[in-house]
Design a protein around this nucleic acid. Sequence first.
DNA 1: AACCGGCGTAGACTGATGGTCGAACCGGTG
DNA 2: CACCGGTTCGACCATCAGTCTACGCCGGTT
Lengths: 206, 206
Amino acid sequence: MVRPRFARLPPAQQQAILRAALDEFATHGFHDASLNRVIDAAGISKGSMYYYFDDKADLFAHVARVEFERLLADVGPVARPPEPGPDAFWSAVERFYRDALTRLAAHPRVASLARTWLGASENPALQRAQLELEATVMPWLERVLVLGQSSGAVRTDLPSDLLIAVAIGMGRAMDTWLLSRPPDDTAPPPTGALVGMLRRALEPQT
Amino acid sequence: MVRPRFARLPPAQQQAILRAALDEFATHGFHDASLNRVIDAAGISKGSMYYYFDDKADLFAHVARVEFERLLADVGPVARPPEPGPDAFWSAVERFYRDALTRLAAHPRVASLARTWLGASENPALQRAQLELEATVMPWLERVLVLGQSSGAVRTDLPSDLLIAVAIGMGRAMDTWLLSRPPDDTAPPPTGALVGMLRRALEPQT
DNA sequence: AACCGGCGTAGACTGATGGTCGAACCGGTG
DNA sequence: CACCGGTTCGACCATCAGTCTACGCCGGTT
């Protein structure tokens, strides 16, 4: 967990550290990111770094949390649909998905960070950081889930955590697939088909 | 790529190396696995290890490939259903899924290896190994996909690689969720509901 | 018997990593 | 001035993956 001291640092120095860390993690992932490079780029000593952060994973969790919170605030919540019913809910989800993709395309470093986060189940050191990050993202996801269920758009016969896990898994798969498309493919991503698959997996059975 | 020399080693020594590597990777994942520990446990020198394997990722890929091939051979293919039609295909898939879960429960080290493989998109070194492993697993997956499509059980309006990516993502999510259940939960895993979600995401739209 | 070439082994060595630690520094207070 | 808590520093540590040189052994050739 970031030490509270960090918040008392002059904002300029906080920024320097966070930007250096964001650059390093975004371009090298977690494992191949080098703390030595971060402290060089940030212009601080190793001692100072460990004075403010528990370890490498803690630094990663903090910079990721800051960036994700900014992103979620930017994109805005999945709006409670004006009219009731599943269709309105799912089109709100699709609108959010499209917006988020647009935002991520405009901030490639944050996109890279998100991908590192989603794809880092392997590293035990990162798993602690995962927990901290989930504390940021999960409540948000759960609100969306409950909204969907109260709209009759999401099934209620399976545990919430399973539904969320499946949604995340599908989202990660779609993201990976979108990334693997050649960059010169100017066609807009088929968000309709992707959200449609998510919908059919999660909506109540008739 | 494993050097062909490795196959000419006395089987006992091959076994010693593979078993040491399996133990290490299964209990520590990829990144935290230590080659030094592997060579100690296997009773060989570092020079010998690098005489037979390109690097750490190569060793991982080899041991994973050996174990996965053994697993797939054990469980057997997704049988071409005796009668035609989507229902028969999807119940064959469920049967395979249940069998595979049973086999993995009986071989926890292999299960751990599979989890390391699925969750290792982050590490660039492992990505080369991923490619090698995919050469083992993907053809198998594609055969299943084509079988499903020819049974009318799987949609044909989206690219195959997207369908496969989504299926893998859902499988990984379900596996993670199954793992997170308390170990004293003796209820059999809800494979029906899980394969049902997969089915609704992948089957043709009416 | 003497020699040779190469396969396989050994382990010291390299450069880098994440993380630790004690010393030094600095602004404020008595 | 003396002290002190919060902060900064960088040398240092263990360990890592990977490299490199030396060497022992063995089968074949002369």
